[in-house]
Design a protein around this nucleic acid. Structure first.
Lengths: 231, 231
DNA sequence: CGTTGTACTTACATGGATGTAAGCGGTAAA
DNA sequence: TTTACCGCTTACATCCATGTAAGTACAACG
């Protein structure tokens, strides 16, 4: 069967920006960009970061090697060269992203003041979840069934550490405080922040409020106040 | 390497169950099922329902006409015959699903007791969101950018009606109650319930709790208590 | 009963996406 | 400088999903 491939130069547009082998004959020698060749780990990092960005946008089903290659200015087999297959790339992105999510969460905690107010904590976590698109990524993974087990190789159950640390802090002031209550607050905070990143704007619109950064911040503030009502 | 397709005769299996034209020659005339032919609206309803189920599972990108056709026991052009294109089908499903979501939400409210406790309300809404997969569907739509405007043709801003009704109820007991507070409670409730349907199990696992229906119910109970703390 | 509209079928066309094969050439080690 | 490894390219194979064309047969209507 094997019908002709229509045009044979759809991909070459991006390529021309980085290596024009046609121009080497004349005087353009000096301006010719030599064919770049990165070290394997650098190339993989570059690909990984672009893939993560793409993944949070279009999800694991929507990720197209050709699109990614065009963005990166390479040919799509280059990606396959480094990651074996599309699924291999997705798995690598997921592993990397969940790992850095954990790191950023814990780092955000230790970086802040010793006992940050709940509002600041809320904003920090919201930033980690929202601004880098982790909530979207997590949602994609959970929806598509790729994140049955939270993190493959890394600190499992990161929220448990948070809960225990928070409870220790809280119990110093209120010795009779129960761990369950702290755990619930943490779970609600996490679920509400993650949910807010996905559903927040839609819910605000559906309830007649404008969907602006200001209303989102106000929501987080009220949430923090509610969670901090015990203290 | 594309393991999903496996055998090359998946579509004929279902078909053979309903119309075996090869067997008509001999004596099997009496047992032959005549080719079923539904009325257009019935066929569309059937397709729509199956498509909605599929959509909540695999998302709008993952919906495959051939898969859907196999489930329904028809050929995939039959679906195209009724909905024009894959996108047409997805759009129809979305329209239909968001419409019934609204209906069910409002129905759940009017069906319940005049002033249901927050815990019961919570469970009712959670059932609408969770059990029929509306939360998943909504999440898919929001993630893939298909639900910029909440509902095309129908009651826009359904939550606003809820908020106003709830505030009227509440203000009868506490005249100085502020609408903003009720609105926030409603938003938090919606976001937490939606977020719980997507992230709940993962968050509970990540915080060291088992992810069972019981823990989910307990979470909703605590949430209801928290939201009802004003009363 | 014959006619007719249309729900539905098979067969195919087309395009797009992943993955493979082979070779080129940059980079760095010897 | 030479050599060899390997990152990356072009060309191609293949598969799979949507959509089209044409025909078939069921059901309703005269």
């Amino acid at each position: 069967m094997a019908k002709s491939r229509s045009e044979r130069a759809p991909e070459s547009a991006a390529k021309s920006a980085r290596a024009s082998k046609v121009a080497a004959a004349g005087s353009a020698r000096a301006t010719r960009t030599p064919r770049r060749r990165l070290r394997a780990d650098e190339a993989q990092k570059r690909i990984l970061e672009a893939a993560e960005k793409q993944l949070t946008k279009v999800g694991p089903e929507g990720l197209r090697l050709t699109d990614l290659a065009r963005v990166l200015g390479v040919s799509h087999p280059a990606i396959l060269h480094h990651f074996g297959s599309r699924e291999g790339l997705v798995a690598a992105v997921v592993r990397h992203a969940l790992h850095t999510l954990n790191e950023q969460l814990l780092a955000a905690l230790s970086r802040g003041p010793a006992a940050p107010g709940r509002a600041e904590l809320m904003d920090m976590v919201a930033e980690v979840y929202g601004e880098r698109g982790f909530a979207r990524l997590l949602a994609w993974l959970l929806l598509s069934g790729r994140a049955a087990k939270p993190v493959r190789g890394g600190t499992d159950m990161p929220l448990k550490q948070l809960a225990e640390a928070a409870h220790a802090l809280h119990a110093a002031k209120f010795p009779e405080a129960r761990y369950e209550d702290t755990l619930f607050e943490l779970q609600l905070g996490a679920i509400a922040l993650l949910g807010d990143a996905i559903f927040g704007d839609a819910v605000r619109r559906a309830s007649g409020a404008p969907a602006t950064p200001a209303t989102a911040r106000e929501f987080r503030g009220r949430l923090a106040a509610l969670l901090g009502a015990r203290d």
